[in-house]
């Protein structure tokens, strides 16, 4: 399952990435890494982009970007 499918209010742990690119490198530098716990806070109108919380801050990213992030331990 990827972050794009995680429901609003759910938490999960990052398990990996679908690809490696400057985009995913930037995502990693922002702290979205394997074993990072994150939570979907809300979705913008039309469900995209999404706002997630990690490491004590809020980050927005698009569904297409969220779909590159694989998750485990969904709560």
């Amino acid at each position: 399952m990827t972050l794009a499918e995680l429901k609003t209010g759910q938490k999960a742990v990052v398990s990996g990435f679908k690809e490696y690119s400057p985009l995913t490198q930037r995502i990693m530098q922002l702290g979205v890494l394997e074993d990072t716990v994150l939570e979907v806070l809300r979705r913008a109108p039309a469900g995209d982009p999404i706002e997630i919380r990690l490491l004590g801050y809020a980050l927005s990213l698009r569904q297409s970007e969220a779909s590159l992030i694989e998750l485990r331990d969904i709560r």
Binding site: L23, R26, I27, L30, P49, E51, Y57, A58, L59, S60, L61, R62, S64, E65
Partner: peptide, 9 residues
Amino acid sequence: TPSFLMELP
């Protein structure tokens, strides 16, 4: 279409 990574302070 390009990326949209942005902090919401």
